[in-house]
Design a binder for these strands. Structure first.
Lengths: 108, 108
DNA sequence: TACTATACATCGTTTTTCAAGGTATGTCAA
DNA sequence: TTGACATACCTTGAAAAACGATGTATAGTA
């Protein structure tokens, strides 16, 4: 139905983080948990395929970097990614608004 | 991750409607569209299996009724359904709150 | 040395939802 | 009366999202 919302509720979260600054996968997981007070405990089996898909779609670019003895894959939001972020944000607002409209609407 | 939200976001809408009064399937589709101003255009391929599942889970009971020359299948929220509605409502609030926390949180 | 945290990844399964199609009745206009 | 449209129910097969499980490897710490 509102096919614009569901298959991207997690995309929105990731895109939003990357809209603030470049991050690597593991960092996103911990940052989402921190901000949501552990409501979002994104699994790696969810995150990495998601990042790869967004990269393939041209929304993200990636670079490898060695830091603190570890190799990290930093993701960066492309111009296209910023557009997608805007869309996903609007989708979310539309969806959340519609749910609340249903929950609060006066019965017909 | 937030496995409590997704696989029941539509359940919440349906349970909520039935929390107000008994309704039949087709009516739910139109009522959701009305309240959400067409954000929710639930497909019958989505709705009916959903209703059947909730009935099998004991959240709904059903009765057939003839009205206006048509046979309608009215659904009613059971006690168990009311519990489920409460849970789903809390899940939604928790989820929506977490999304907004991520979107508004100050960067680490 | 062993455990934990960090950091990446893949694979198979489950679940939700959709698109498409099917059946049947009532209403209304051409 | 014929056709179109709304109402009202249903099923099936396919796609996609997310998860759980699992694997690899390194760094730090007890």
């Amino acid at each position: 139905m509102a096919r614009e919302r569901e298959p991207g509720s997690l995309d929105l979260l990731i895109l939003h983080l990357l809209g603030e600054r470049d991050m690597y996968g593991y960092e996103m997981v911990t940052e989402l948990a921190r901000r949501s007070e552990d409501v979002f405990k994104m699994k790696e089996g969810t995150l990495y395929p998601l990042l790869h898909r967004l990269e393939k779609e041209g929304a993200l670019s990636a670079r490898e970097e060695r830091a603190e003895g570890r190799t990290r894959r930093y993701y960066h939001l492309t111009r296209r990614g910023r557009e997608l972020l805007r869309e996903r944000t609007e989708d979310w607002e539309r969806y959340a608004g519609a749910v609340n409209a249903v929950l609060c609407a006066p019965p017909a």
